[in-house]
């Protein structure tokens, strides 16, 4: 899908961390901690996949990082410019696609900027469409465009392809991989899909009972192939960490 084989984070001089989470704890009411003294760092330009069962705290972690949930215990440092793509496109149905993309942005060149990024995600022909007329894949492309137009240093993807059909999902994974190689922002991808994590990420972390139990670097060359024996091995490791027997 892409020609680059060794995706390195944006420049070696950009040392340090894009995102640093220190001893983050979150509980609702008197229940058990959803996040339990969690530590996680993401380097600039690094693509991290976050896996875990339902209820393992993935969504809580992402919501906290996105600023939707408050930090009650622990600390979070993250870049100022972040973007989130949700499972649903969350486009405003009463604004045309391009207006959705540059929602909240100012400047006279809003439309051109929207057009440019929409072309980049392959949606240049639907710039004036109403969101309710888009297909599921097109809507997610628009949501990606809306995230990218802000030129984020940190991009959060919350199961962005979970609601798409298998073929569309493959195309979208290719697109995300391409866009990431071009923009080089740090990415946190929340997913249920082990293959997706292995196709896209530099590192896969598995969340369990509010803590990171497995932190697996994925050193595969890109483009990645399912048939690669190393891919198979990493797949078994991840499935094992998720408590699924790889028969």
């Amino acid at each position: 899908m892409n020609a680059l084989t060794d995706p390195r984070p944006r420049g070696a001089d950009e040392a340090g961390k894009a995102v640093a989470i220190r001893r983050l704890t979150r509980r609702f009411g008197d229940g058990p901690a959803v996040l339990d003294r969690l530590d996680l760092t993401i380097a600039p330009g690094e693509f991290v996949a976050l896996l875990g069962h339902s209820g393992s705290g993935k969504s809580t972690l992402l919501r906290t990082l996105a600023g939707l949930d408050p930090v009650t215990e622990g600390t979070i440092t993250r870049p100022r410019d972040v973007s989130v793509v949700f499972q649903e496109s969350r486009l405003l149905p009463w604004k045309r696609v391009w207006e959705n993309v540059v929602l909240g942005q100012d400047g006279a060149d809003r439309r051109e900027r929207a057009a440019k990024v929409l072309r980049e995600v392959g949606l240049g022909h639907r710039i004036d469409a109403w969101p309710l007329t888009l297909s599921g894949g097109e809507a997610q492309r628009a949501a990606l465009a809306r995230a990218l137009v802000r030129e984020p240093q940190f991009l959060m993807l919350d199961e962005p392809f979970a609601a798409l059909d298998a073929l569309t999902r493959l195309k979208m994974q290719g697109l995300v991989s391409e866009l990431w190689l071009r923009h080089r922002c740090a990415v946190l991808l929340v997913t249920h899909d082990v293959d997706e994590a292995l196709l896209l990420a530099d590192r896969a972390v598995v969340l369990e009972h509010g803590q990171i139990r497995t932190d697996l670097p994925i050193g595969l060359a890109r483009p990645r192939r399912h048939a690669d024996p190393e891919f198979e091995r990493l797949r078994s490791v991840l499935l094992d960490a998720l408590g699924v027997c790889d028969g």
Binding site: V82, V84, R90, L92, W94, K95, G104, R150
Partner: peptide, 27 residues
């Protein structure tokens, strides 16, 4: 509420959220 969350992640101000999200949605 998902649209309101989205507006928050995009950094829309309260006034702008009312103008661009809440009022057109209630129209």
């Amino acid at each position: 509420p998902k649209l309101l969350e989205m507006a928050r992640t995009l950094g829309l101000s309260r006034g702008r959220t009312i103008r661009e999200v809440i009022l057109p949605g209630a129209l």
